[in-house]
Amino acid sequence: MNNTEQPAEKASAMQVAKAVFWSFLGIRKKDDLDRDAKMIKPHQVVIGGLIGGVIFVLSILTLVKVVTS
């Protein structure tokens, strides 16, 4: 099973943020993806995704506030 191979090193918060950002757009370079797959752990993606989701919602809300004010 794939669980046996340990990630070489832990991913930095910046790297998770980048991966999450690109996932919202739906595009990712192959090399970066391979690095992501090796280094980022699932729980990091989940936490990153949740934070990303909140930021996403807040930024739309800000945009709406600007438009309606």
Binding site: S23, I27, R28
Partner: peptide, 30 residues
């Protein structure tokens, strides 16, 4: 890989758009 990412992205976005089915029931402009 972008297909995988796009699928995940669609799944996440799908959870925050529900009220577009309800624009006529009464909702603040915001």
């Amino acid at each position: 890989s972008s297909m995988v990412y796009a699928t995940a992205s669609i799944a996440i976005l799908s959870c925050i758009v529900w009220a577009h089915h309800m624009f006529t029931v009464g909702m603040p402009t915001v």
